[in-house]
């Protein structure tokens, strides 16, 4: 199936959790925040959150800005 990850189409196995996605992206334990369909999902809930087709996922971090 496909989700939209940070604005781009991203293939994903059915039934995969947000936690598995973050691990696959090598972002586990990094300073990131995640939202699915514009709802923030706290890290403690990543393992339980199973991604659905066409889910829009935003993974963000802090960068330099004024």
């Amino acid at each position: 199936m496909e989700i939209v990850l940070n604005g781009a189409s991203h293939p994903l196995t059915e039934g995969e959790s947000l936690q598995q996605l973050i691990v696959a992206l090598e972002l586990a334990g990094k300073a990131v925040a995640v939202a699915v369909n514009r709802q923030v999902v706290p890290a403690s809930l990543w393992p339980q959150r199973i991604l659905q087709p066409e889910d829009k996922v935003d993974v963000v971090r802090a960068i330099g800005g004024g």
Binding site: H10, V32, I63, G65
Partner: peptide, 20 residues
């Protein structure tokens, strides 16, 4: 200090130093 919140660059080196 103010910081901006931006999408992570998927595929970029995850071990690159971070602003924080």
């Amino acid at each position: 200090i103010t910081v901006a919140i931006r999408r992570v660059n998927i595929g970029q080196d995850p071990n690159a130093p971070n602003l924080l």
